[in-house]
């Protein structure tokens, strides 16, 4: 919990130990939050806001969560709709499995399978692509988001609001349920649009003041 005299929301980022976590933390500071890194189930359980970042492979990501005994607590948070933000690989880890790592079981809290982009498009998909919110999207608005992915969730399962992007074919740009937001793109790298999205998630859908 944040001390009472600190008005900034405290955002707990699961420390995966790889890649651009420093960049992710800076993104939350720009949104007016106080990022902290955590890697144990008790902290993940008690966190006001939990962020599951992720770059790297599906298998490595799951191995990291298992080693730290985080599988059950993240599953519960998502099931209960508690404030949880999954980014890029983080979204994929919520699913049952991925074409990237056959035989590896995901968090399986989203009943779906992650698939690779078809062979005839550039992959990884690096760059800015347009995002179209669905009728039930509460957090995601129309705009451009920054992607760095070779795999994607083709469509959200029932019960999840889907925003959509097209790269060769449509896929789930982001899915939402309760206070859970999972983005295939990187909100922390998606300019003002991305910062405004993170602020709406932090403020539970309230309109964010401009960054």
């Amino acid at each position: 919990m944040a001390p009472p005299d600190d008005p900034r929301p405290r955002v707990s980022i699961v420390a995966t130990g790889v890649a651009n976590t420093a960049s992710v933390a800076a993104g939350f500071r720009r949104c007016g939050a106080e990022p902290v890194f955590i890697d144990d189930p008790a902290s993940a359980q008690s966190a006001d806001y939990l962020v599951l970042p992720g770059v790297g492979s599906f298998a490595a990501g799951m191995a990291c969560l298992r080693e730290r005994d985080l599988v059950g607590v993240i599953r519960d948070r998502v099931d209960e709709g508690r404030p949880t933000l999954a980014v890029c690989l983080g979204l994929q880890l919520l699913c049952e499995s991925s074409e990237e790592s056959p035989g590896v079981e995901g968090l399986a809290v989203v009943p779906a399978r992650i698939e690779r982009f078809p062979a005839d498009v550039r992959a990884p998909q690096f760059g800015w692509n347009s995002v179209e919110p669905g009728p039930a999207s509460r957090y995601v608005r129309a705009g451009y988001a920054y992607y760095a992915n070779s795999y994607r969730l083709p469509a959200a399962p029932e019960g999840w609001a889907q925003a959509t992007t097209v790269h060769a074919s449509p896929f789930a740009a982001a899915i939402e349920r309760g206070r859970v937001l999972a983005c295939q793109f990187h909100p922390e790298l998606s300019g003002r649009w991305g910062l405004a999205l993170v602020k709406r998630w932090l403020q539970n859908g309230e309109e964010a003041p401009s960054c």
């Binding site: 420093a22 960049s23 500071r29 720009r30 760095a148 922390e188 790298l189 300019g191």
Partner: peptide, 12 residues
């Protein structure tokens, strides 16, 4: 890099 990162919200 650290100084730029604090302000930059696009990939670096």
């Amino acid at each position: 890099v650290a100084a730029v990162r604090e302000l930059l919200s696009i990939p670096l």
